[in-house]
């Protein structure tokens, strides 16, 4: 789909168009519209516009149609997950975010994989997914190593990308300026972790202070 059309559908927030965008990444345009038309006929959601509740209702039917046309069940799951993300966007207060508790180092791997899956659903390229997983890994490791425990929230920002927030109640980062200018080397990493996340991100913010804990938020656009 041409980028101006994509931009238009994003701007008008037309859910149906967004659904079609996702479907067209997996099947032909014709298959995509027939799957949607059939599903809507079955659930008699015939009004012009599609809302998120209706989308949730027609998902099982779309799922069945996709399985007829797509050979790889994994790809179907991926596509349905992307549609699920659309069906519970923040705009309607739905549960669009996932919160992963981070305490032990296995959690670092877990949250990294969670982020990667969500990125697939949102249509990130391999490079985009790798950047995201790397940035999430840095923040998760910082929590485990410096704060002991915390959480990472992964929030889909439809249709543009993913917002990641890492929160902890640890000791806070006392030498933030030094770290961000790249003059600092920690014993555990290269002293480049947090700064690296900033370089990877499209938007980046740190809130920290002695004894206040640390909150790092970054946004990665679909790329």
């Amino acid at each position: 789909m041409p980028s101006d059309a994509r931009a238009k559908s994003a701007a008008s927030g037309d859910l149906l168009e967004q659904v079609m965008d996702v479907l067209r990444r997996y099947v032909s345009s014709t298959t995509a519209s027939s799957a949607v038309v059939m599903a809507r006929r079955r659930t008699s959601s015939a009004s012009e516009r599609l809302d998120r509740a209706q989308l949730r209702e027609i998902l099982p039917s779309i799922d069945r149609s996709l399985r007829l046309f797509m050979a790889d069940p994994k790809r179907v799951d991926e596509c349905i997950k992307a549609l699920e993300v659309l069906s519970c966007s923040k705009a309607e207060g739905g549960p669009s975010s996932t919160i992963v508790a981070v305490k032990v180092e296995q959690d670092v791997v877990r949250v990294r994989n969670e982020a990667r899956e969500l990125a697939v659903a949102l249509g990130f390229s391999l490079t985009g997914r790798t950047r995201l997983a790397t940035a999430v890994s840095e923040l998760a490791r910082n929590i485990v190593q410096y704060a002991g425990e915390g959480e990472i929230e992964l929030k889909a920002v439809i249709p543009s990308g993913l917002e990641v927030t890492a929160r902890d109640r640890g000791p806070g980062i006392l030498n933030l300026d030094e770290i961000m200018t790249g003059n600092y080397r920690s014993k555990l990493g290269m002293g480049l972790g947090l700064r690296g996340v900033k370089q990877l991100a499209d938007a980046f913010e740190v809130n920290t202070g002695a004894g206040k804990g640390t909150t790092v938020t970054f946004v990665l656009r679909v790329q």
Binding site: R129, R131, Q199
Partner: peptide, 14 residues
């Protein structure tokens, strides 16, 4: 080293 991994390292300045 995979291309996407190399790309990310460069972007992070490592």
């Amino acid at each position: 080293v995979q291309p996407a991994v190399a790309d990310t390292l460069v972007e992070m300045g490592m």
